[in-house]
Amino acid sequence: MPSEIKLVNVPALGKTAGYSHLAEVRGGRTIYLSGQIAVDAQGQSVGTGDFTAQARQVFENLRLGLESVGLTFNAVVKLTVFLTDMQYLPQFRAVRDEFVNTAQPPASSLVQVAALVRPELLIEVEAIAAAP
């Protein structure tokens, strides 16, 4: 992780489950990745009915976006996650942990939503990354 990025867990805010309380970024550039859904390069849905497959595609799409500007998941300082059902939380965490630095995970928010842009979708994730 670049030295200009500091991920912090504040003891007074309690223990976290796979995320940091805050991210401090000094200097450099900030990249905002739009919410990614489980679609392939042709815009076709991936993993219909399979949350884990959808989550993996979403994180692959985020990885591709980061790569396009010369970054990796180590540059991600914030994730915002939208799930259609909280029952998917364990599977989400398992897939997320394949991609992020679990020793210093990004700050995160997670909400349950009634629906996403396509009815077959179960997850959407947007990201903010910082680079020197």
Rank of each mutant, 00 (worst) to 15 (best):
F99D: 04
L13F: 09
E126I: 11
A107F: 03
L62S: 05
T30L: 14
E120M: 02
S109M: 13
S45E: 11
A17E: 00
T84Y: 10
V46R: 01
K15E: 12
R96H: 05
E124Q: 06
A41I: 03
L83R: 02
Q44F: 05
M86I: 10
F92M: 13
V46Q: 01
G47M: 00
A107I: 03
T30E: 03
T80Q: 14
Q91R: 04
M1L: 05
D50I: 01
G35H: 04
D97P: 13
Q36T: 01
D85I: 14
T80W: 12
E98D: 14
V113T: 11
H21F: 11
I37H: 01
T102Q: 13
L22Y: 07
D97T: 10
A38P: 14
Q87D: 08
F99L: 07
V117S: 12
N74W: 05
G14W: 06
G35M: 03
D50E: 09
Q87C: 05
G47N: 04
S34Q: 14
D50L: 00
L71N: 05
K6W: 03
Q42H: 05
Y32A: 11
A94Y: 13
G65V: 12
D40N: 12
M86A: 11
K6S: 07
F99M: 10
D85C: 11
R29Y: 10
A129I: 15
A41L: 01
L66I: 09
Q54W: 01
F59G: 03
P132K: 13
S34F: 06
L122P: 07
Q91E: 09
A75P: 14
V39T: 09
H21Y: 12
H21L: 10
F92C: 06
P90T: 04
E126P: 08
M86Y: 14
L83W: 03
Q112T: 13
